[in-house]
């Protein structure tokens, strides 16, 4: 592949990864809290689920999501030769 094709392929993958993570983000940021009242009828480790999601669940999801994102994006960068040198 030429450099331009490489760049294009790299950006396509990067953009897809962005969309995937924004969808996950949207679910934990908004969707679950929209249904908090319904979720409260179930419990999770002793918590009403709706309360749990707002006080811990979503937060935990964001933290895990970001560490995974870092790994995935780095893999994409390396795959297309777009990553920085490792000592950089």
């Amino acid at each position: 592949m030429s450099d331009n094709q490489q760049r294009e392929a790299h950006w396509n993958k990067t953009r897809n990864l962005m969309i995937i993570h924004l969808v996950i983000w949207f679910v934990f940021a908004f969707v679950v809290h929209w249904f908090a009242k319904d979720l409260n009828s179930s419990t999770f480790i002793g918590f009403p689920l709706g309360y749990y999601m707002a006080s811990q669940g979503s937060l935990l999801a964001f933290v895990i999501q970001l560490f995974v994102f870092v790994k995935q994006q780095d893999k994409i960068d390396r795959q297309f030769g777009m990553a920085e040198d490792d000592d950089a």
Partner: peptide
């Protein structure tokens, strides 16, 4: 609490 943590997903991704 949700807003002040979830914003970092946008910071990292975008």
């Amino acid at each position: 609490v949700v807003g002040w943590t979830g914003g970092y997903v946008l910071v990292a991704v975008l």
